[in-house]
């Protein structure tokens, strides 16, 4: 059995008085990439925030690398377990140059970590555009470049686990593909453990090997592997209620989540349709 690097057990979280997550239990093995799929507002982002200690845990346990981190302050969780949180809003620091935005994430690798140590140059190798713009104010970058910047910033901390929230949000499809490709490489080459939350489930499918289907209040309806997903596309489709969801959603958001089978095979690398060749 693989070791569980991250484990949530009966987690309850609140925003003020509203009970957002009610008894969530998931786990992620070391080196594994896992995605959480669900509609808007089911608690996906809250789950990531709870792991990072940004939203306080009310009940239950969070264990990272065997340490009970549930009630630790964020900075301690990050320092001692090397969790890197990459939020959907990206949070590039305005007023800091691209280089400074990367350097601020710098942290020595965890004791006994096998991976190589990340440097500015290594990040620039993955994202050459950042090197080109290293003196520019980070907030003036395009959406895709900002996404690369915050992933780079997370890497500078030599993370063991990366919590990636909606990496494709607001990006053009071609950029989404590029970002997804790089993240996939990172996980493969550096043994990075990944938890990704995505609306665009083609990205989830490409990045993760295992998927949790989350329903309202953080309830996990089921978990499935890529093979199971490929075999039962309807389950995911139904879970995300793509058809009736579009009635409420704006058109632009709908276009980001086309059903896998409808995706043009060439332009959708990694979609279930493309995989089942």
């Amino acid at each position: 059995m693989a070791t569980k690097l991250l484990e949530l057990e009966d987690v309850h979280t609140y925003y003020g008085d509203s009970h957002v997550i009610q008894g969530l239990s998931i786990y992620v093995n070391k080196g594994e990439a896992v995605s959480i799929l669900g509609r808007n507002g089911v608690g996906k982002t809250t789950t990531l925030r709870t792991i990072a200690g940004l939203t306080p845990l009310r009940r239950g346990t969070v264990r990272i690398g065997g340490k009970d981190t549930g009630h630790w302050p964020t900075h301690r969780i990050v320092k001692e377990t090397h969790v890197a949180y990459v939020p959907a809003e990206r949070n590039v620091f305005p007023g800091l140059s691209v280089k400074e935005n990367l350097k601020i994430g710098e942290q020595p690798p965890m004791n006994g970590s096998s991976g190589s140590r990340w440097t500015l140059d290594m990040v620039y190798e993955y994202f050459p555009i950042l090197k080109e713009r290293h003196l520019q104010d980070g907030s003036t970058l395009s959406g895709g470049e900002q996404q690369m910047l915050v992933i780079g910033r997370a890497l500078m901390g030599n993370p063991e686990i990366m919590l990636l929230d909606e990496p494709s949000q607001g990006l053009a499809p071609i950029v989404v593909a590029k970002v997804a490709e790089i993240v996939k490489q990172l996980c493969a080459l550096h043994g990075l453990t990944l938890v990704v939350v995505e609306q665009n489930f083609r990205v989830s499918y490409k990045l993760a090997q295992r998927h949790y289907l989350m329903d309202l209040k953080g309830q996990i309806k089921r978990s499935l592997t890529n093979e199971e997903w490929a075999a039962n596309e309807d389950i995911v489709k139904k879970h995300l209620s793509i058809d009736d969801g579009c009635v409420e959603k704006k058109d632009s958001e709908c276009r980001q989540v086309p059903a896998p089978s409808e995706a043009p095979s060439g332009a959708a690398p990694g979609g279930p349709g493309a995989v089942s060749k």
Binding site: A52, L54, P73, T74, H75, R76, V78, K79, Y85, P87, N91, F93, P94, G95, L96, E100, K103, I104, G105, Q107, R153, G157
Partner: peptide
């Protein structure tokens, strides 16, 4: 100084980078 400037904009993100705010 970098941390201080960053903290003036998005303090939460600074703590998510391992800094004790």
């Amino acid at each position: 100084g970098m941390i201080m400037r960053a903290a003036s904009t998005i303090p939460e993100m600074v703590s998510a980078l391992g800094v004790n705010m």
